[in-house]
Design a protein around this nucleic acid. Sequence first.
DNA 1: ACGCTTTTTGGAAACGTTTCTAAAAATCGG
DNA 2: CCGATTTTTAGAAACGTTTCCAAAAAGCGT
Lengths: 343, 343
Amino acid sequence: MARKTGKAATISDVAMKSGVSVGTVSRTLNAPDTVRPATLRRVRAIIDELGFQPDARAQNMRRRRTATVGFIVDDISNPLHAITFKAAEAELREHGYWLHLVNTEGKARQEADAIERLQHGRVDGLIMTINNEKDVQCRDRLAALRVPSVLLDREIELAIDAVLTDHAPGLFQATDYLLEIGHRRIALITAGPEIRPGRERVKGFVEAFGRRKLACPHELIRSQRLSPDFGFHEASSLMQGPDRPTAIIAGGNRILVGVLKAIQQQRIVIPDELSLVTCDSTDLTRLYPGPLTVVDRDIEDIGRTAAQLLLERLGDRHNAPARRILVSTRLILGGSCAPSPPG
Amino acid sequence: MARKTGKAATISDVAMKSGVSVGTVSRTLNAPDTVRPATLRRVRAIIDELGFQPDARAQNMRRRRTATVGFIVDDISNPLHAITFKAAEAELREHGYWLHLVNTEGKARQEADAIERLQHGRVDGLIMTINNEKDVQCRDRLAALRVPSVLLDREIELAIDAVLTDHAPGLFQATDYLLEIGHRRIALITAGPEIRPGRERVKGFVEAFGRRKLACPHELIRSQRLSPDFGFHEASSLMQGPDRPTAIIAGGNRILVGVLKAIQQQRIVIPDELSLVTCDSTDLTRLYPGPLTVVDRDIEDIGRTAAQLLLERLGDRHNAPARRILVSTRLILGGSCAPSPPG
DNA sequence: ACGCTTTTTGGAAACGTTTCTAAAAATCGG
DNA sequence: CCGATTTTTAGAAACGTTTCCAAAAAGCGT
C-alpha cells in the first residue's frame, strides 16, 4: 500500500494540545496513578483524538530494552521447530515480548552472524539451536554472549541455560522394543556426534544391545546429518545392500522423510518387509497411512519451558547459575513394526 | 547464561580512545570514503579492540527505521507458511532486513493488535495474511496502515500490494480432471467465503461442472474453515452419508490432514474406493505412501515475490499504485485418483 | 610561502521517549 | 484562612546514534 502521508503524532504533540508537559503525558501512559484524574481524562482524550501511539524506537532507546526475543533456528519449516516457536511465542507474548525469527539454514556463518548482530540492541534475549556444537565461530559468539539465552537441545560447556531432550533413554526403549520382538539387524540413521541428539541417540541404541548382551551392529549406525537427503541415501543403500536390516530407526523427523522416500521408491512394504520406528510425531507419522511407531516428546512443552527459563533470566534471576531442563520421551506403538521372522 | 557484566562500548568510548570526535567514528562506519585513510585505520583498530558494535536501538531511533519487517501469520507450523516465511526472509536478509514473526492463531483480535502495534516503530513494513477479510477490526487497521504492506492470498478493496494465487483455474482443472475420468459425485472441502482461497476454489469447482453442462452437486461443497478438524468432520460425514462421493477435493493442506484422518479411521482405500485430490504439495502428499494428486503452486516464489514487492515499496516506489501479483497453479497427477465405475 | 580550493574534522542538534529534581498546586488540620 | 504536608506538575537531562554546519587541515598551483 502507499505510505501514509503526514507524520505520526508524538508525545509532545499530545503535550502541546492538552496543555501539559511531555512528562505528564508519559506518566499518563506509564504511571497513571501519579496523575490527577482530571488531567488523566483530558490527556487521554487528546491521545485518542490524535491516535497517538508511543514510538517503539524511542522507547527501546530510552528504556534500554526492546521487549523482543530472538529465535534462531536452522529451518522453521521443520514443524517441530515451528511448534517450539509457537509455544515460546505464546508464552513470551503474555509477558509483552515480540519475537525476531532468524532462519539460518544451518549455516554456521549465518548462525554466528545472527548471534553477534542481534545482541547489540535488537533483542533482550535469545532462544536458539545451532547446527554444530563444535563450530568455533558459534562457540566464540556464545562465549561472548551479552544477553540471556537459552539453547534448544544443544550442549555446550558454557554456562548457558538449555532445554534438552533425554534422547538416550528414548532410543534405548525403541531399540529394546525391536530386540524384544525379534529384530537383530536394526539400523539407526540420525544426526552426527557434533550435536547432542546424535550422540545421545547412538548411546541409547548401543546400550540397548549391551544390556541384552548382544553384539551391536555398528555398521548399521549411520550418524551424520539431520536431513531428508541423508535419510534417503542411507536408507537406500542399507536396503540395497546384501544383508539388509529388518528394522530401521529414523532418528529425526527430517530423516524420516528421506527414509520414507527410499521405502516408497523401492516399494518396500511396512511392516511386513521392514519395521520402522521414528522420532517425533508429525502429521506424516500419524497418517502414513496407519500411524507409525514413534519415540515421542512434548514439543510445545519445550518451547514453553525455554520461554520460561528466559523470562526468569530477564526477570530477577539475572545471575543465577545456568540450568538445564531435561525433557523425557515416550514410545508410542503404531503399526509400523512387526515381529522379525526368526533366522 | 549469566548476563555479562560491564556495559558495551559506545561510539563515544571509541571516539575518546582514538582521539577523534563521535562524528568521525560514525562516518568511519557509515561513510568510510569521507574519512582520511590514516584516521580510518586508527579508528577501526580501536573499534576492533573494544569490540564496538553500534547500538541498534539508537540507530533505529535516529534513522527513523528499524530494518525490520513484520510477518503476521495465523500458524507458522503450517509448512506452507513456514516456507513462505523462509523465502521472504532470505530475500529480505540480502537487503539487510530482519523479520519479526507474529503467530496470531487466526484470532482477529491478535491480528488487529499485531498490525496496530508493530507499526509504531517496530517494523518498516509488513507481510501478512489475515483470517477473515471481512473482520471489521482488521479492516480498520488495514485502512489506517502507516507502513508499506503486502497481503498474502487475501483480497481487500484497499490499495494494498498483494500476492494472490490463482486458485479458481487450479480447482477448475482438478475438477475437470475428475469429471473426465468419470466422477460425478465430487465433494469439495475448503475455506469459507470470507477469504479469497475459499471463494476462488468454489468458483473454479462450480465452473468445471458448468463448462460441461453438468449439474454441480452443491450439497457436496463444504466451504467453511481451513482446519484439520473441519476436514475431518466433513469428510467423515460425507463418507458416512447415504450417497457418498466418489471423489473428494481437499482444498487446503490443513484440510487434507483431517480428510486423511477420516479416511484412515474408516479404512477407506485410496484410490479404489475414493479418489482424492488435494491442494499444495507437502511431505505428506509426496509420501502418503504413494504421491497424491495435487493442485500445486510455487510457495517459495510467493514468499520471494512478497519480499520483492515490499522492498520496492521501501525503496523508491513509496507511492506507486498498489499491485497484485497472480501466482498460477498446476495439476500434478499422483496415484490417488482412479476412474469412477460408471453409474 | 601564499592564497585558493578541496577534503577532513569537531561540535552540536536532533530523533522521541523516560525519569529525575525541584517547583507549584492541592489538600488538610486546626 | 494559614502553614505544613502531600500530591501533582513542569522542565531538563539522558539514552547512543546520525547528520548538519562551520571550522580546521590538507593539498595544490604558482
